[in-house]
Nucleic acid binder design. Structure first.
Lengths: 246, 246
DNA sequence: ACCTGAACACCGTTCAAGT
DNA sequence: ACCTGAACACCGTTCAAGT
């Protein structure tokens, strides 16, 4: 796209008057494309082809601008709809949706977190999870526990996953870490902990295990409108060795 | 302690020659006391009563200084010793120790995370958890799953807890959030999710529930040297309603 | 080997002044 | 109501120069 004027508007009519939303849009684009450190008032002004001080007129200062940006991100993460026929499947689906949304905007999520709004960002998901916990038969503090456990696991896992992306090599794991301990000669465990090949798969497995542990076990699905074959296959897998053995 | 010279060493012998460790110590102190944003090269120089450029001679640049700081933090978090007689109790103890250590240096932990070293920071704890998972009878990928689930939950919960501290009022929860949904009329749940009065208690409860779900259930403790009454009381609480009901 | 001040290119923010 | 340049106090970093 050819820019009609490459000098910052000398004597020509300098485009439509700037709006607050335009400023926030440009700021979001800057963060998404070049990371949070690229969002300086001066660079933003250059991007918008205005004087720095114009921006101050519209958004007050950098702090308020970030606040607005964060506010928008929180809103974007607002609608998370559970899918599936059983509470278990629906909780897992919320967790996966949450993960996808978070990974789609890592910079903005980091900024939300830095500004102390993590909890608000997760409130929609929390409500959905609470509903499912209730549907699964959990009540009161017990249900809250389950909601939090899922929520925290998702956040923790996503944070680490994003972290791993950023620094691809975690410095080859200091040789002789595991070997010196004779108690855990479990090569499969060591291998599994080394580097998950498919983060999404690992994520889902972890959440599923967690939900299994949190929900009261009911092998018969709740009464639902109809039973979809697509969800049923992964919904009630054969019980593994985790069952009670007294 | 009276400072013998309050001007930056005019013609007097300007104290023992600066060392790299001194610089890192001062940087750590600055971060711990005034937060990460207070760690500027110039302020650090002022604190050390030297020229800014001396610091550059010792640590290269700001980036390397932060790296050294982070390296030290990772080392400090290195030794985590499990306590208790059953794998369950020992895993919970690791989680609690981890939480305590992380909350003790929130700024530095945030910096470690920003520099992509979260995983390395948690490696000692991970090893301890893996050992306990093995002791509890889990093997291979299944054990890795359990280790990760606990790890992620701790990280997630600590991050949120720290977040909540920073912004004490999460904007009174937008009235009419829960009410419009008739499905979940569980006032106890809503109350429990609103604001945990004792984060430590909530934390322990969550981790305990999680571990219950992850470990194969065994009501008899493993054979240990001797059974301590101090740990036994909280180690095997009466089984709650989570048991199998087929 | 260690320290120094001057200088450069960047910040966020304020202010008086324009239209 | 909206935009502007100049100026202030801060950054990180480099460099030539001291001892």
């Amino acid at each position: 796209m050819p820019t009609p004027q490459r000098h910052p508007a000398r004597s020509a009519p300098q485009r439509a008057p700037l709006t607050r939303d335009e400023v926030i849009d440009a700021a979001a684009a800057l963060v998404r494309q070049h990371g949070p450190q690229a969002l300086t008032m001066r660079r933003l002004a250059a991007e918008l082809r205005t004087a720095v001080t114009s921006i101050y007129w519209h958004v007050g200062n950098r702090e308020s601008l970030l606040e607005a940006l964060v506010e928008r991100t929180v809103r974007e993460l607002g609608d998370i709809r559970p899918r599936g026929t059983t509470p278990r499947a629906r909780i897992v689906s919320v967790a996966r949706a949450l993960r996808r949304e978070l990974l789609a905007r890592p910079h903005l999520v980091a900024m939300v977190h830095e500004r102390g709004l993590t909890e608000r960002m997760f409130h929609a998901a929390q409500q959905a999870l609470a509903r499912e916990a209730h549907a699964a038969g959990l009540r009161g503090a017990r249900a809250a526990e389950a909601v939090r456990a899922v929520q925290f696991s998702v956040i923790g896992q996503v944070l680490i996953e994003r972290n791993r992306e950023r620094s691809p090599q975690q410095r080859p794991a200091e040789p002789g870490w595991w070997e010196h301990d004779p108690a855990d000669t479990d090569p499969a465990l060591v291998r599994a902990l080394a580097a998950p090949p498919d983060p999404e798969k690992v994520f889902t497995a972890t959440i599923r295990a967690l939900v299994d542990g949190l929900l009261p076990i009911s092998d018969s699905p709740l009464p639902t409108p109809r039973q979809s074959a697509r969800t049923a296959d992964r919904t009630a897998p054969p019980r593994t060795s985790r069952g009670r053995r007294a």
